[in-house]
Simulated assay, not measured.
Amino acid sequence: MSVAVTPAAAHLGMLLWAVLVGLSFPAVGLMSELPPLSLTALRFAIACGALWWLARRSPGFLPSWRLLPLYALMGLCLAGFFGAMFWAAHHATALSMATLYVTVPLLAFLLGLGLRVERPGWRLPAVLALGALGALGLAVAEAWQQGGRLRFGVGEAVFFLGCVSTALYPVLSKWGLATGRLPASAAVRTFWSLGAGGVLIGLVGLAVEPLGVLATMSARDLALLVYLGLFSSALTFWLMQRATAALTPGVVTAYGYLVPFVSMLLLFVQSPARIGWAWLPGSLTVLVAMGLLMRRERPEAPAG
């Protein structure tokens, strides 16, 4: 039997989510250069393996055939984002991608309005815009330090479609919960959506990547892959699904604003001399926005 998640517990879980996602980037940077789509499919497979025992013991583990299209669409959202991100990484600047990613919470809010899982109003969009401004400030501070530049081309357009895709994932989850289509267990929802996304990403990887390179994976690469599968995929997506039951999609995705803040803290620990005053405005703005979000603990939005 599933235990109801309070908004306070959901917020705490998403704080942990932001820390885990922020820690995953250094782990990825330690890995050898391997086919990214195939690695993501393997990460999702490891995550599903970790979730199997918990999910299979939960009510509604085996979905009905009517539910399969929804899980497939949720998996397509994951595959679309990761596919767009890996392709755009070779055709867009890091600053452009970081700038576009701050639109995800606002996109989730607008998509949520369309499916009636967000309440109309100005307060949440205003807080999301404040958080986006702070996250953008952190991205600009990092790019200024590294000499990056902002532009918009084909790579940025593809990545923006990926941002729309990832914003739609929690909206579909919330809509499925609100309409009684998805089960109450966060583990079940995470298992099937990650499974569907992993299959789709894996098929694309089979078609476009040299899989023979995976044979060169070292023991360290394998250990990092297992870590990413368990903590950066299984646990983070479970935390997101758990929070979706108590919070709206816009609030859930807004925790992505904290990821560059966590990365900044890691940079400060590793190289204190690289942190300057340019990081302060964005950091303070993000913290203020997240504080305002945590105070907005109100009942769930009405179902469509």
Rank of each mutant, 00 (worst) to 15 (best):
T99G: 03
S38Q: 08
L20I: 10
W65E: 02
F81D: 10
L110M: 11
F109I: 06
T99M: 15
P69S: 13
L34Y: 07
P63K: 10
R56G: 01
G80T: 08
P69N: 13
L23I: 00
H91W: 12
W87N: 09
A47Q: 03
A92M: 08
L67C: 08
S32N: 11
A27H: 00
L73P: 07
Y71G: 06
A55C: 09
M31A: 15
H91Q: 13
A79P: 09
L20N: 07
F81N: 14
G83L: 12
F61A: 01
A18D: 04
L76W: 05
A108G: 13
L110Q: 04
L34I: 02
L100N: 10
S96W: 11
P36Q: 09
S38C: 05
S58K: 01
V28I: 15
L110T: 10
A94T: 14
M31K: 05
S32W: 02
L54F: 12
A88M: 04
A45Q: 08
P63W: 02
L113G: 13
M31Y: 09
R57T: 00
P69L: 11
R43D: 01
L95K: 10
L73M: 12
H90E: 15
A89G: 13
A72H: 00
V21Q: 04
G80H: 06
G60V: 11
S38A: 14
S96Y: 11
P59A: 06
A92Q: 03
L111M: 15
T103Y: 05
P105N: 09
L39R: 09
L54Y: 04
P36W: 03
L15Y: 04
G60W: 02
I46R: 06
P69I: 14
A55L: 01
L113R: 14
